[in-house]
């Protein structure tokens, strides 16, 4: 018998091989697409075709699903690779002029004396996002919101680039460096808390997360509490709220005290 005769029904091996394979396929298909869908009493199908489509994974519109109300605005910031890339000297200069009005709280060199965040050398993406959120109302603060509400997109980008350009200076009242607490380097795996350091520096940094070294302890503590109580809600997909809710008050204090005690010049250079 030559290879040519292989694919004919007179070849016993061909007939048996193909027959058994096809039979198994047909039987399993009937079981998987018809019998088993109807064996689920909690699912109702209009007809057999409906059951087959469902088992095949055809995307179907879910009936009677109402979107939950969103009483407050969510963050709508979109960051692309071009948004903040390679700022010109003019843009940074414009940002410096605009920053005059920020200096009263955030300090003339971007280092605050008033428990506001230190902005000198903060990642541009972070400042960009927060200013947008203040402007849109996704984040609200009696002092900050009025400043942000009239800023244009270009002004926000310029301010972000200006502060990112400034050198990272020590905090106004530096304190002795504390050792890393567990919450910063280990998180709390059993409560679903990733280590603070895996996004905010110390271990790794993720886009959109600020570095925290040398920031005001009172400010960081207040923000964690605001996330925990859902008073602050401009974190995308509740990333920070889920973490802050699961943190104990001791952990909040330890994390805030640790980051406040670190010199900002240990932040990994990213630019």
């Amino acid at each position: 018998m030559s290879t040519r005769d292989l694919f004919t029904f007179s070849n016993r091996h061909f007939t048996i091989g193909v027959g058994i394979t096809a039979a198994i396929l047909v039987v399993t298909a009937i079981a998987g697409f018809v019998v088993l869908p109807f064996a689920q009493p909690w699912v109702r199908f209009a007809n057999v075709w409906d059951a087959i489509c469902s088992a095949a994974g055809v995307a179907q519109r879910a009936a009677n699903v109402t979107t939950p109300d969103q009483p407050k605005r969510l963050s709508e910031v979109v960051l692309t690779s071009r948004t903040l890339s390679r700022p010109s000297q003019e843009a940074i200069g414009r940002g410096a002029t605009l920053a005059q009005r920020c200096a009263i709280c955030h300090g003339p060199t971007g280092i605050s004396r008033a428990d506001s965040p230190n902005l000198a050398g903060q990642y541009a993406a972070v400042i960009y996002k927060e200013l947008h959120d203040f402007r849109s109302g996704a984040r609200a603060n009696a002092v900050m919101s009025p400043f942000a509400v009239n800023l244009t997109d270009e002004e926000i980008a310029d301010l972000s680039n200006y502060y990112a350009y400034l050198p990272r200076l020590p905090a106004y009242h530096p304190t002795p460096q504390l050792p890393k607490p567990n919450i910063v380097i280990y998180g709390a795996p059993m409560r679903g808390i990733a280590p603070c350091g895996s996004c905010h520096g110390s271990l790794d940094n993720k886009t959109g997360s600020p570095w925290l070294e040398g920031q005001s302890e009172a400010y960081m503590k207040a923000q964690l509490q605001a996330f925990a109580s859902s008073e602050r809600r401009n974190d995308i997909s509740q990333q920070m709220r889920n973490i802050a809710r699961a943190m104990t008050s001791q952990e909040i204090e330890a994390a805030a005290a640790y980051y406040a005690s670190q010199p900002p010049d240990i932040v990994k250079a990213v630019d």
């Binding site: 198994i24 396929l25 399993t28 998987g32 869908p37 469902s54 088992a55 095949a56 994974g57």
Partner: peptide
């Protein structure tokens, strides 16, 4: 979730 249950069953049987 993106794979239909029917195909999961066939693959399981094979």
């Amino acid at each position: 979730p993106q794979v239909g249950a029917g195909f999961k069953f066939i693959h399981s049987a094979f």
